[in-house]
């Protein structure tokens, strides 16, 4: 009699669990496997009632987004709470001291046909004034941003 009760109970439990789908532990394992397959590291996944919570610190926002998408794609995960943080960024260093950077910028601007632009550099931050032909505008902005500067105040005007 006792055995029979136990059997019925076990069967009922098995039926109950299978009706619920995968357990949280299974989902967490599947999520971790998916993250590993997608080469995302540094992420801890906790699953409760099918809701995954991601914690940890990752390199940048693209990794944060990728981790979320990876875990969302796991069958059985209902939703994802993305509590990942991104690594604090190192402080940018200018490619040269201000006078050298100014000279470099002026040379590059002249070479790019942007001689109407004037730059003033302070601790790597560049204030750009003056006017360049509208057709040259993007090129001039590119030239300035590629000089190894760490800040910009763009007041450059588009002329004719």
């Amino acid at each position: 009699m006792k055995i029979k009760v136990l059997t019925v109970f076990t069967l009922a439990l098995a039926l109950f669990l299978s009706a619920c789908g995968k357990s949280d532990a299974d989902l967490a394992k599947a999520a971790n496997d998916k993250l590993a397959a997608d080469k995302v590291t540094g992420v801890t996944v906790a699953v409760k009632d099918g809701v995954a919570t991601l914690t940890g610190e990752v390199g940048d926002i693209t990794v944060k987004n990728k981790a979320e998408a990876s875990v969302k794609s796991v069958e059985g995960i209902k939703s994802v709470t993305n509590n990942l943080t991104t690594k604090p960024l190192p402080v940018a260093t200018p490619s040269a001291p201000d006078p050298a950077l100014t000279a470099k910028l002026n040379d590059a601007l002249k070479a790019a046909g942007c001689s109407g632009a004037a730059v003033a550099v302070s601790n790597g931050k560049v204030t750009v004034t003056g006017e360049v032909p509208a057709a040259k505008y993007v090129t001039c902005v590119q030239t300035i941003q590629q000089a190894g500067i760490t800040g910009i105040d763009n007041q450059l005007k588009k002329g004719k």
Binding site: D60, L89, P90, A92, G124, G151, I152
Partner: peptide, 11 residues
């Protein structure tokens, strides 16, 4: 590579 420039500028 990312770094942080003047006043939160993303470099």
């Amino acid at each position: 590579e990312l770094s942080e420039g003047d006043n939160g500028t993303l470099v």
